[in-house]
Simulated scan of single mutants.
Amino acid sequence: MTVTEGFINVTGGKVWYQQHVQEHSKNNTPILILHGGPGSSHYSMQGLSILSKDRPVIFYDQLGCGHSDRPDEKSLWTLDRFVEELALVREALSLGEVHLLGHSWGTTLAAAYALTKPKGVKSIIFSSPCLSAPLWAEDQDRNRKELPQDVQDTLKKCEENGTTNSEEYKKATAEFNKRFVCRLDPKPQILIDGAKYKGRDSYETMWGPSEFHVTGNLKSFDCTNQLNELTIPTLYTCGRFDEATPKTTEYYHRLTPNSQFHVFENSAHIPYLEEEEEYVRIMKDFF
């Protein structure tokens, strides 16, 4: 396998990319991985390089995180700029035909990009999707009610007082994450190691202080009324205990004409780590 990496100029700076290519499959349509966040980096998803046995796999860190530049300019943190960035990455890497695999916020980006009707996108995987911020917020309100009452009270108090950067808010958030983000105990080392690659500026500007308290400029994002325009093969997946709930994910699936739907029964929001082998199997079956 050949692994190459480099940087691509985009609005606001340079973004890092890495390509995994095997000689016997280099002519097959590549997969471009769109990581979550905003600002989470490709780091925890690097195990998906195993898909390069069948076709090239390309990772890139979106601006503001990972190995990419981290400009201190809030005007850069918009969905439109990230859509433009994705187009520039495709152009720079000569990805005339491509499969898109987006996870979490990466699905927001994949949908917004696909709805600009670019040529050559052969299929999309929406992994633990967020295609409607209002629906996401409603689901998290329900999820929060499953937390112990003292945790709920702490979250509410900190949000009302504007102390979401406090240690008590972080500890309460961790309780949410154990149930709805990653259920593995102990927490996977790759998530611990990957924390340093996260970019908080883009996350807090676009999303908010936590997964379940949406205050950023994506707050009103909702493309559900356009999902019928996605006519290419599409796969929706989520975990049974996912913050991207099975009910809402299936709803997106029903709105998308040529789509499939799969639930990972033993996962929350990170099935590519929580059920690694099964996740890869489902991806391979789809491709």
Rank of each mutant, 00 (worst) to 15 (best):
residue 1 M to V: 12
residue 58 I to T: 13
residue 154 T to P: 05
residue 232 I to H: 14
residue 258 N to P: 11
residue 281 R to E: 14
residue 205 T to D: 09
residue 228 N to P: 07
residue 136 W to P: 00
residue 174 A to K: 12
residue 67 H to A: 09
residue 199 G to S: 08
residue 55 R to L: 08
residue 165 N to I: 07
residue 125 I to C: 15
residue 95 L to T: 11
residue 143 N to R: 05
residue 115 L to A: 13
residue 98 V to L: 00
residue 109 L to A: 10
residue 262 H to S: 03
residue 109 L to H: 14
residue 137 A to C: 08
residue 76 L to N: 07
residue 235 L to T: 01
residue 207 W to M: 04
residue 253 H to M: 13
residue 153 D to G: 08
residue 81 R to F: 15
residue 253 H to F: 13
residue 129 P to K: 01
residue 271 P to F: 15
residue 138 E to S: 03
residue 146 E to W: 07
residue 234 T to Y: 04
residue 197 Y to C: 15
residue 270 I to A: 03
residue 55 R to P: 06
residue 2 T to W: 01
residue 1 M to Y: 06
residue 54 D to M: 01
residue 230 L to R: 04
residue 246 P to M: 01
residue 4 T to Y: 02
residue 40 S to D: 02
residue 198 K to C: 05
residue 142 R to I: 08
residue 116 T to S: 04
residue 191 L to Q: 10
residue 236 Y to E: 00
residue 261 F to L: 06
residue 63 L to D: 13
residue 259 S to I: 11
residue 131 L to T: 00
residue 180 F to R: 01
residue 117 K to Y: 06
residue 224 T to A: 04
residue 70 R to I: 09
residue 271 P to W: 11
residue 228 N to V: 09
residue 56 P to Y: 07
residue 51 L to T: 09
residue 56 P to G: 03
residue 231 T to V: 12
residue 62 Q to V: 14
residue 261 F to H: 02
residue 39 G to C: 10
residue 181 V to R: 10
residue 170 K to V: 02
residue 116 T to E: 05
residue 264 F to H: 08
residue 265 E to T: 07
residue 19 Q to L: 08
residue 87 A to Y: 03
residue 66 G to Q: 12
residue 161 N to S: 13
residue 257 P to I: 13
residue 162 G to N: 00
residue 223 C to E: 07
residue 172 A to L: 02
